[in-house]
Simulated assay, not measured.
Amino acid sequence: MTVSGIGVDRISQGGPPTGWTAVAQKLGPGFASRAAGYDANDSFVAENYVELKEQKVLAAGVPAELGGGGATHAELCDLLREVGRYCGSTALALSMHTHPVATLTWMWRQGRPVAPMLERIAANQLVLVTTGASDWLDSSGKAERVAGGYRVSGRKRFGSGSPIGDLLLTSAPYDDPNEGPTVLHFAVPMHAEGLTVLDNWRTMGMRATGSNDILLDGVFVPDAAVDLRRPKGVWHPFFNVIPTVALPLVLSVYLGVAEAARELALRQVAAKRDDPEVWPLVGEMENALATGQMAVREMVELCANYTFAPEVATANAVFVRKTIAAEALKLTVEKALETVGGGGFFRGMGLERLLRDIHAAQFHPLPAKPQHRFTGRVALGLDPVT
């Protein structure tokens, strides 16, 4: 591993940036120049998405055979990590599009009939919006059976990228008369009749992700759009896949945010490098960042560029490292602020925005306490959730 201070080598190459990471570095300064303004206005990073589309970044994870960029999973993690150094909101919104693309790529590698969807994403640079994390095992809302499909109503949270989204990937509970409580997974166009994006994303951090609530009022979902049926509230085998693919991508965003905070802190205290009181603060920051880097690296390695075994043990290992990474990266940015001192409290420096943004890491599944419960049950040989 190449090390310069705390190692910031790329997971996929272990060397200088190439390919998609180089694209991120090309776009990054523009993202950084607009980050404070988007944050202050609670506005979506729309201009950044124009540039992402121009560079075909939204199709980076689509296999080259299907018209996409052919990036490996590890290369996607590096891409998001790099974007996170410049603008956390852009990186997080992009990760919420990238992880369903990556999941579709895993499915394609398994021989599932998802090639047409991936080809559409590549050809049209479609923006995917997903609500899977907030729905989790029980889902939310209600699906009612009608001729040819279902009518779905409900309010979906955390629809990142919703201001310019093209396709909503979501789910809804259905009281199946034969199978009992069932969750239906499906995709609907963001312009579907009865679908409304609410302008309500007003948050402490990650303010520019456009993660608005999405209101579904009798939206028609044809039978052909339902791609998965599963028992409600039960750990389904596909949940062994989703976190293993998605969480390394999402946590790579926060790794980039933490690395940006570390770099900013070191620049700010450069004039005090001979002050003995500064040394232990910097050392604590370095330790925390190294812990986060190791945890994220292991998450990426667990996915193994889509060759992982889709088992509970794999998902559990990812969840454990997600908690370790989220806590360590949050501590990194807190220590960066402590290192800088009172000057870091001013918005103009940008450090307080990084601190607010990093706090969002804890809310992605599984949060720490549910993860401890999940992992404890797995270690004791119990079903992970029931």
Rank of each mutant, 00 (worst) to 15 (best):
L126F: 02
Y150P: 00
S139W: 01
G180H: 05
P113H: 13
G159Y: 04
D199S: 09
G159S: 08
Q110N: 08
A122D: 06
A115K: 09
L118H: 05
L195W: 13
D176H: 07
G205T: 07
G205Q: 02
V197A: 10
V197P: 00
P116N: 13
H185E: 06
Y150M: 04
V152M: 05
A122H: 02
T170W: 02
V152E: 05
D135C: 11
V188E: 01
Q125W: 09
Y174M: 02
K142M: 11
P113Y: 12
L184N: 00
M117T: 10
P177G: 11
G180R: 11
R145M: 12
L128W: 07
D199E: 13
T170P: 01
S140T: 15
S171D: 01
Y150W: 15
A123W: 04
G159F: 04
D176C: 06
R145F: 08
V197C: 13
A143M: 10
G148D: 11
A143S: 08
G194H: 04
E179S: 14
I121K: 07
T196F: 08
A122R: 08
G154R: 03
V146M: 13
S140L: 14
A172V: 00
T131V: 06
G132R: 14
E119W: 01
E179P: 04
T203S: 05
V114S: 09
V152C: 06
M190C: 06
